[in-house]
Amino acid sequence: MTAMTDVCLRRPLQRPSDAAIALTGVGKTFLPSGSEVVALTDIDLTVGDGEFVAIVGSSGCGKSTLLRLIAGLMPVSTGRVEVKGHRVSGPDPGVGIVFQTPVLLPWRTVRRNIELQLDVRRLGRSQHGKEVDRLIALTGLAGFENSMPYELSGGMQQRVALCRALIHNPDLLLMDEPFGALDALTREQMNAELQRIWMETRKTVVFITHSIMEAAFLADRVVVMTPRPGKIREIVPIDLPRPRTFETFRNPVFHEACDRIRSLMSASGLME
C-alpha cells in the first residue's frame, strides 16, 4: 500500500526534468509460440535524478524485461516509458548497461574494450582518452589497460564492463545482476566500489539483483517484484546514511529493511 500512495503522491509533482525514469501502466506480453506469457503488468515507477534504485524479485518475475524496456531494447505492450521526459522508442544514447556477463570482446584489450562504446557511437577515441584513463583509475583497473580479457578475473572483467557502460557519460546506468556470477567476497568488494563510483558520478542507477542484502546495501529504494505476472509489490525506502560501510551490516535499520523485503518476497511465494 505504501508503494501505491508513494507513487500516486509523487506523480503530480514530477516534472520531466526531475524524474530520470517514469514508467506508467507498463506491461509486457510475449508470444513465444502461440501461448501468451505476461511478463509484466501494471508497472508504475518513477526514479529520481541521481537516485539509486534496486529491483529484487525471484527468477522469472520480469526484472530483466523491465530493464530492457527502460533501455529501449524492446517495445512495451502497454503503457509508456519515459527517460528524462522523453518517451523511449529505441535504445537511448544516454543509457549505459552492465549485463550479468561482462560480454567483453576477447580480441580487444581492456582499454580497447572500453573504447568499443566510443568506436560504435563515433565519439572519437582521442578526445575521450583522458576520460578512459579516469574511469580506469576510478575502477581500480590501472596497470591492466593492455591486458586481454581472459587474463582478468571475473570481478576485473565486470569492472571493464562498468567502464564501458560509463565512458559515453550516460545519465542512466542500468545493471542486470552484474555481480551475480562473482564469489561472495568479490561481490561485497564490488558493491562497496560501485557505491563509491556512484557517489562520485551521481548517475541514476537501476540495479537488478536477487540478493536482498546487496539491494539494501546499495539502494535508496528497493523495488520488490512478484512473479506471474510480474508486478511491483512494494517499494521499500532504505534510510541509511552514505557512504554505507561494513558497519551498515550491523545497523538495525538495515536489518529491518532486509526483513521487510524478505517477508514481502516470501509472502508472494505463499500466494503461488
Binding site: 533501455a71 531494447l73 535504445p91 548497461i97
Partner: peptide, 20 residues
C-alpha cells in the same frame, strides 16, 4: 547479452558486422 550490448550502442548493420 552481446546482441543487446550492440543494440544499446546503436550499432549499424555494418558496425555489427565489423565489430562483432
Amino acid at each position: 547479452d552481446m546482441d543487446e550490448l550492440r543494440l544499446s550502442m546503436r550499432a549499424s548493420v555494418w558496425q555489427t558486422f565489423w565489430y562483432f
